[in-house]
């Protein structure tokens, strides 16, 4: 997914009246929490925030800075479903908020 698509799809979401944080904060196009991403596609993990144990657990599951994931079910601001390293992970809102992502270069 390109940067443009990344921003545009979420902006469209806002237009049809759905909740989408990206739509409200259009200026932060580059990096955003996974929980605010409301369009399916490939994304790159920029950083993982939260306490040490949370970061470690994410790292063991393969959610590491620089790794790529595919957002399967965004569920707009709530829990979401991502594919990473061949497996599907379900993340709740807190976990998804801790993962900062940006558009993937692979598209």
């Amino acid at each position: 997914m390109s940067d443009k698509q990344f921003a545009k799809s979420c902006h469209l979401f806002k237009k049809i009246g759905k909740r989408c944080v990206q739509g409200k904060k259009k200026r932060h196009v580059g990096i955003r929490p996974l929980s605010d991403t409301c369009c399916c596609g490939r994304l790159k993990v920029c950083s993982v925030q939260g306490d040490r144990e949370t970061c470690a657990r994410m790292a063991h599951m393969g959610v590491l800075p620089g790794s790529e994931l595919e957002l399967v079910c965004p569920n707009t601001g709530s829990q979401c479903m991502v594919k990473i390293n061949g497996s599907t992970l379900s993340l709740d809102h807190i976990a998804a908020t801790n993962i900062m992502v940006t558009a993937s270069e692979q598209g």
Binding site: S47, V48, R52, C55, A56, M58, A59, H60, G62, L64, P65, G66, S67, N85
Partner: peptide, 14 residues
């Protein structure tokens, strides 16, 4: 780097 050692360890394992 903004990461904890366990993330670096995990990264190298992967």
């Amino acid at each position: 780097a903004g990461v904890y050692p366990e993330s670096v360890v995990a990264d190298h394992r992967y």
